[in-house]
Design a protein around this nucleic acid. Structure first.
Lengths: 341, 341
DNA sequence: CTCCGCGATC
DNA sequence: GATCGCGGAG
């Protein structure tokens, strides 16, 4: 049987709020290590990786590794029924096709239990290696969220450029252009207000703001966000979860370079390369139909949506393994009981 | 002429917000006793009873009993124009087909008056006797509202079960099941946080969450709600209005019992009884077309909506008068002037 | 943290 | 029009 107990139940609520719009169904992997999840977003352009280490729970018991397939929307609905300072228990009996969520109010006067059917979801366990990045930006998560929201009222994509001095977020749209520069700033009263740039190489990459805004839903989880960029790799947007783990979002960059006119640039490439050859690397299952985002704004014809299909996600051989999909079988049948009460 | 003046005008705003979604048009009855209203909801399944006693007003004058037919949506619109700490005056001249709402800002710097046409609404005055109930639950109104809202994200109906230990709210839906238990708790810091169960008989009744959520709109009126349950009677959900009276909502239970499978249960009954024989007791006017709720969720076919029509609202002879509709003529032509300034 | 009022959305 | 989500205040 599997059982975890988390006094700060609001954490789970926030985690689900942050990922449920990106991923519909996913397997939660329960092992001695902890409670984790890895899943592609429904259009197979972004990837979410969640880890909640077993040590972070007040009680954690996992008799054998199990994978619980859940509809994240439904799971989020149920967790919403927990008060923000309720204690949350998640329980699944071996062989049962149900999971139970239990919420205890701090005073124990109100005790709720919710039962949800598990689903059978076939998804391989992805191995995501830690990589070296050209630049790592740490900044207040609320500031990052604000920037993504502001820019998305101007354009659809953001160019993130990192120099020694700071990080620049740029966009352009029908109504004009926008550039927001955040300078490195470590001399702040509170450490969570700091903006820190670690840079090996200058880097400038383009991403769909739609996804960035989706990632920013994790803002309540952490006061700081870490953005890791390399020209050959998907960006990683990470929110640390205090004492427990993280939520990481991976997104393949679009091909446009910062200074080039994206429309012209894209159009020529779109004509030159057939779509079939340019599927982004983040695509796992070729049999699953691709759903390119169709912008409601069709002013710029089809070139507006092509970039998503042509993401620069075909690294040369040596870095090819970076987001390779290698099913990772963890030691199964292992028994672990932890009780930190 | 009729005139009332209420310093705490926000009370009236809240009252109208709480009932305007349930009842479109209704007669306000103005008498020496006070300002009151009784009306069925538009689908004739629920009933609202409002009483604001004359003693609660700063000024109350009622020369003769009158009945003012108003569209509650429009009345709510006008009251929304009052500031939350405005003093509200409602005035109607004899023989006039208009009512005037006057709002004075606390500083007297802004004085508004709104005039609204009265309507002719034919509805008998219902006599609703006080009954004995198997169980009476008092609990924080906000908690009740939260429970109804949470459960309605899972299912459409709630089973309310009362035992000596507490009250249980349960539902089930496509995505799973939910049970919320609130224990009796009288040892609280503030009396408005108490949950008190008065029980003669265990009782378990099923109601449409849609109505419960509508009733819960009255939450701002009172910190506590009283839920009175008997197996043969409509539930009463009461919000006391400080020093003045109450808003009470009556709702006929659905026929399903707690442990039975509601769908099967209902289906057999639905087949056994023709609709014409099973109109709920709360129906006043047979000539008014019944509008059963049509759930968007049609998975369970027509049985899903039948229960509302078959509500257990046919008490045996001795209790038959309980929600009987007896036109209650109060002494008319009586003159009363009260001035409590 | 909860309540309240506001703006945006469907 | 109703709901939800956001931001500000107690």
């Amino acid at each position: 049987m599997f059982e975890l107990r988390l006094v700060q139940g609001s954490l789970l609520k926030k985690v689900l709020e942050s990922i449920k719009d990106l991923v519909n169904d996913a397997n939660f992997d329960c092992s001695a290590t902890g409670f984790s999840l890895q899943a592609m977003d429904s259009s197979h352009v972004a990837l979410v990786a969640l880890l909640l280490r077993s040590e972070g729970f007040e009680h954690y018991r996992c008799d054998r590794n199990i994978s619980m397939g859940m509809n994240l929307g439904n799971m989020a609905k149920m967790l919403k029924c927990a008060g923000n300072d309720d204690i949350v228990t998640i329980k699944a009996d071996d062989g049962s096709d149900c999971v139970t969520f239990m919420f205890e109010s701090p005073t124990q006067d109100k005790i709720s239990d919710f039962e949800m059917k598990l689903m059978d979801i076939d998804s391989e366990h992805l191995g995501i290696p830690e990589s070296e990045y050209d630049a790592i930006v740490r900044m207040p998560s609320s500031e990052f969220a604000r920037i993504c929201k502001d820019l998305s009222s101007i354009g659809d994509t953001v160019v993130i450029s990192v120099t020694k001095e700071g990080v620049k977020f740029s966009t352009r749209g029908d109504i004009g252009t926008a550039n927001i520069v955040c300078r490195q700033n470590t001399s702040v009263d509170k450490p969570e207000d700091a903006t820190i740039i670690e840079m090996k190489e200058m880097v400038s990459l383009t991403f769909a703001l739609r996804y960035m805004n989706s990632f920013a839903k994790a803002t309540p989880l952490a006061s700081q966000v870490t953005i890791s960029l390399s020209s050959e790799l998907p960006v990683v947007v990470e929110y640390k979860i205090a004492e427990m783990g993280y939520v990481r979002f991976y997104l393949a960059p679009k091909i446009e370079e910062e200074e080039a006119d994206p429309y012209v640039e894209t159009k020529s490439k779109a004509q030159g390369k057939p779509t079939a050859e340019t599927k982004p690397k983040l695509e796992i299952k070729p049999d699953v139909e691709m759903k390119p985002e169709v912008d409601s704004n069709m002013d710029n014809e089809v070139v507006e949506i092509k970039p998503e299909l042509e993401s620069k996600m075909e690294p040369e051989e040596e870095s090819k393994t970076d987001l390779d999909i290698k099913p990772k079988k963890e030691a199964n049948g292992e028994v672990q009981v932890m009780d930190v009460e």
